[in-house]
């Protein structure tokens, strides 16, 4: 375990790499990469046991990014802590690269490939179950998306994990409230998410998932829970904001798929990160930020509503748009 970077430094680097990787490749899911960056950073700076020069080290903790579409976030973290060369990040999505858009285990430091949602928790459950059977001490961490919780298999895994008292398992839900086309609330209501997990028998910790302090406390609590007599698995409901860290991406579903294009999008994203750069990190792409950046004009599509759900099925006798974004902010307005 390197402790090469503080969690704040690592989170910043994940975000900076994420912007560059999606910018260069035209890759999707920058919003998800931004929302999950703090979770990944805290895990790899303060929580997970690993040896970067021995990826299959038997005593390592297991980590699965079940929301595999945020692959760039874990690739960036693994490169930064030393599993492979940071330069390789630039090959993301490219012909012949090892860095597929969704997470691949053909890369040192990755225990399990994902990309189809609803698989990762079951895999983590299987690992945790086998480890517990063999009386090993390793922990298993699985990061899921909230939209991913639409998948029934997540709840099959949740039942199994509780039934077999997998207190060596920690699930973290990146609860950014947004999925591919709209908010969760306007897609399939996931309300009372913590209560759902509680009903499935889990220990539930609800926090602000973009706060490193709260994440660290939550992981400590998960560690404590693993020693409690109820032996239950723990889920951390990490309330996050999609696109967190780049104000014009926040809470705007456009940035689920859109990548930062050359011009104001890339320039503004890089400079906003530079404005919040922690001590002791370098930006290998634009060391000084961008001088004379291109700025958005009145004609550019900034902080607008890009959801369409409310235009569908308007004759249906129920109100289906249950939440709206507050333009230009990370707040949501509940309509029902």
């Amino acid at each position: 375990m390197g402790n090469k970077w503080s969690s704040e430094q690592l989170a910043w680097k994940i975000r900076r790499h994420g912007i560059e990787m999606t910018h260069l490749s035209g890759g999707s899911h920058i919003g998800a990469i931004m929302s999950v960056a703090d979770i990944i950073a805290v895990l790899y700076s303060d929580v997970i046991k690993y040896k970067e020069d021995e990826p299959r080290w038997d005593e390592r903790d297991r980590f699965i990014l079940s929301k595999g579409h945020a692959g760039a976030s874990i690739y960036a973290a693994l490169a930064e802590v030393g599993f492979f060369d940071v330069d390789e990040l630039k090959t993301h999505y490219q012909n012949g690269s090892r860095l597929s858009g969704h997470v691949s285990h053909h890369l040192p430091g990755v225990d399990f490939s994902t990309g189809s949602l609803g698989h990762g928790l079951s895999a983590g459950v299987g690992m945790a179950y086998a480890l517990k059977k063999d009386e090993k001490e390793n922990k298993v961490y699985v990061v899921l998306g909230d939209g991913e919780c639409d998948e029934g298999s997540v709840w099959e895994a949740a039942l199994f994990a509780n039934h077999f008292r997998l207190n060596n398992l920690v699930a973290i839900i990146d609860y950014n409230h947004m999925q591919s086309l709209d908010f969760n609330e306007n897609t399939l209501e996931l309300n009372d998410l913590g209560e759902k997990w509680k009903a499935f028998g889990w220990n539930v910790v609800e926090i602000n998932g973009n706060s490193h302090d709260e994440l660290k406390v939550a992981f400590k609590q998960a560690e404590d829970n693993s020693k409690k007599s109820n032996h239950k698995p723990t889920v951390i409901i990490a309330n996050t904001i999609k696109g967190y860290g780049i104000s014009f991406m926040q809470n705007d579903v456009l940035w689920h798929y859109r990548f930062p294009h050359s011009g104001w999008e890339y320039d503004s994203a890089v400079n906003e990160l530079h404005a919040n750069m922690p001590e002791g990190v370098e930006d290998i792409y634009t060391p000084e930020g961008i001088q004379n950046p291109i700025l958005p004009t009145e004609n550019d599509d900034v902080c607008n509503d890009h959801t369409f759900t409310h235009t569908w099925n308007t004759s249906y006798p129920e109100k289906m748009r249950r939440v709206e974004a507050v333009p230009g902010s990370s707040a949501r307005e509940y309509k029902i």
Partner: peptide
């Protein structure tokens, strides 16, 4: 679905 992926996870251990 869970059974099959649990098996995969156990196999990887």
């Amino acid at each position: 679905q869970n059974m099959t992926t649990v098996a995969a996870g156990m196999a990887l251990e």
